[in-house]
């Protein structure tokens, strides 16, 4: 005879296993992504030589004697990201200060909605606007033959990182204890001085989180950058057509083969390493912030 207790026990065990499987699938995906990137990315690095690959200044994948140096892509990604941070973070921080401390309810609602909506706009739409508005504007303003360059890409990236910088900084500023503010006001500082001399410094680990998050966003963006950076494998200069790590992968993938294709996987592996390092820094920053509280 069937024992009802046993069947329900079996069901419970089975469901426990099913849920555990779902949970571990996330871990499995991370391992799978890492494994596939390493397996397809390492051979080309071995063949080209790691120093020639990372520090080679010339990328000529389709030349008769191909050269696979990605220093220009690495530097472009680093400069482009740095530029976006330099422009985006101050504006984002000011906007976060407004939302957290200096606004009345109604206007704050409008600005917050604007920030939310900006974060939802697809990157190809930013790319399209960059192509049609920013690129011609940069060409006219600086009297260049072509406006598709590092500078245009920095502008587009700065706009694209704003929403995440703003929302993370706002949360950090709001988390500062009220007593800090009250003490500063009682000592005779004005509201503005209190916010910038006391509240913002107290929120610095949260703001740092916002900056690191912005770095991750900017360095990983592909499509928008592809549409405005000109996409030529030059060493980076502000008004030169450049290629980022992300766009280097995307632009040749559809027609590549052999060592060239493998080298593209190696570029993706380098990009992945950058992202992992950024994630690590993010975790450290968040952890240190928690410890300080």
């Amino acid at each position: 005879m069937k024992n009802p207790k046993n069947t329900s026990d079996a069901l419970e065990k089975a469901m426990n296993a099913v849920f555990a499987l779902c949970g571990f699938l996330a871990v499995a995906f991370v391992l799978m992504i890492t494994a596939f990137l390493v397996i397809s990315g390492v051979p080309a690095i071995g063949e080209i030589g790691i120093t020639d690959f990372l520090f080679g200044r010339v990328w000529a994948s389709t030349a008769a004697e191909p050269q696979y140096g990605i220093l220009s892509f690495i530097l472009t990604s680093v400069y482009g990201t740095a530029g976006a941070i330099v422009i985006g973070v101050p504006i984002g921080l000011m906007c976060a200060v407004y939302l957290a401390k200096m606004s009345d309810g109604k206007n704050a609602g409008i600005v917050r909605t604007a920030v939310d909506l900006l974060s939802g706009i697809p990157s190809v739409v930013y790319g399209l606007l960059g192509m049609i508005i920013i690129v011609p504007l940069v060409r006219e303003a600086f009297n260049l033959p072509d406006g598709a360059n590092l500078f245009s890409a920095i502008i587009v990236l700065a706009v694209m990182i704003l929403p995440s910088v703003i929302s993370v900084s706002e949360t950090a500023i709001k988390a500062v204890p009220k007593e800090y503010e009250e003490a500063s006001l009682a000592l005779g500082a004005t509201k503005t001085e209190t916010v910038f001399r006391v509240v913002v410094p107290a929120a610095k680990s949260g703001i740092l989180t916002a900056v690191v998050l912005g770095i991750g966003r900017a360095i990983g963006e592909a499509m928008a950058v592809m549409m405005v950076a000109g996409n030529v494998a030059n060493m980076p200069r502000l008004f030169r057509s450049v290629r980022f790590l992300t766009t280097a992968v995307a632009s040749e993938m559809s027609y590549s083969s052999g060592l060239q294709r493998q080298a593209l996987f190696s570029i993706a592996l380098v990009l992945f390493m950058f992202i992992l390092i950024i994630n690590l820094i993010l975790n450290l920053v968040v952890k240190r912030g928690e410890k300080n509280e």
Partner: peptide, 8 residues
């Protein structure tokens, strides 16, 4: 996973 860029 949430930090990995789309292109990857």
């Amino acid at each position: 996973l949430s930090g990995i860029p789309s292109i990857i």
